[in-house]
């Protein structure tokens, strides 16, 4: 397992380098620049701004400057928000996005695993069909519909919960977490059902039952360990996806997370911010994929032997 870990970490370095290099040159290819605005700036002002941000240097010089900055842990200043560095902005947005992702994944796990296991145990009954139908709806209904719908019911009609904000009003974290969690709960429910069904037919489960263990013990102690491996494998990319892809929920609920910075940076041509967030998210994806692979290896005795 240690060897796998070292190998994967070493593989991550060229991956991140390639991501940084490609992003650097690709964003410069996109038409428009960070200082283009409806009220155009004069050529003199543009010249001054390009000098201030070193955009008048050659591409290669800018690239080497930027890469040597990254090595020192400096992602440069934001073009859109003067006075703020990209590192600072990631530092502000990340804990919020991370907190949202954790709540969402917890909600997703509790609902998803419960529904999936129940459906597998009560196969071909109403307790199988109903959770799976709801899961299918969860997969199909996008968050941009689910979010406003929940807001309309719980925020505006029932007046139970705030409709937007994060940590400003009591209960304002509930609706965004549920909205984001519900979509992932649906996937997890289907994955757990599939995994459990496969495991429940195996010999070692029959043996456990033959030994006289209660059905609850059989499910919790034996079946779930193997049955939930697909869910664990899904968790890594899911958390990475939640971190990078919570833009929609962050926008609907006015959450100051990293997802909004990421998308807005691209629209604003905030070069350093685009680069900083892309490299950061790539590192996150690599890291969480590695983590989930290691967890799956650890859970699955067969893989453990092979490794």
């Amino acid at each position: 397992m240690f060897k796998v870990f070292i190998k994967r970490v070493l593989m991550a370095i060229p991956v991140l380098l390639a991501v940084a290099t490609m992003t650097f040159f690709l964003i410069k290819l996109a038409p428009g620049g960070p200082f283009d605005a409806e009220k155009a700036v004069s050529p003199q002002v543009l010249k001054n701004l390009n000098e201030v941000y070193n955009l008048d240097a050659s591409q290669w010089e800018q690239y080497t400057d930027y890469m040597s900055g990254i090595v020192r842990g400096d992602f440069g200043p934001s073009f859109k928000y003067p006075g703020r560095s990209v590192t600072e902005m990631i530092g502000i947005g990340l804990p919020i996005t991370f907190e949202l992702a954790i709540y969402a994944i917890l909600i997703a796990l509790v609902i998803g695993v419960f529904a999936g296991v129940l459906a597998a145990l009560k196969r071909n009954t109403l307790l199988d069909f109903i959770p799976m139908a709801i899961a299918m709806i969860g997969i199909c209904v996008p968050t941009f519909l689910m979010g406003p719908l929940l807001v309309l019911i719980f925020g505006i009609n029932l007046e139970w919960l705030p409709v937007a904000g994060w940590g400003q009003l009591a209960g304002d974290k509930i609706l965004p977490s549920v909205t984001l969690g519900f979509a992932y709960a649906a996937y997890i429910a289907r994955l757990s059902r599939g995994g459990m069904l496969e495991v429940l037919n195996q010999d070692f489960i029959r043996t456990a039952r033959a030994k006289g263990l209660s059905e609850t013990m059989v499910v919790i102690k034996h079946a779930m360990q193997g049955g939930l491996i697909p869910v664990v494998s899904f968790l890594g990319p899911a958390i990475a996806g939640l971190l990078a892809g919570s833009f929609v929920v962050e926008t609907i609920f006015q959450i100051p997370g990293l997802g909004r910075f990421y998308v807005e940076a691209a629209l604003n041509r905030d070069y350093t911010m685009i680069l900083g967030t892309t490299i950061f998210f790539s590192a996150m994806i690599v890291f969480f994929n590695l983590l989930s692979d290691l967890a799956a290896l650890w859970l699955n005795p067969r893989s453990r032997d092979v490794s």
Partner: peptide
């Protein structure tokens, strides 16, 4: 979102 915040 702004409209909903006003209504709430």
């Amino acid at each position: 979102t702004e409209d909903r915040m006003f209504r709430a």
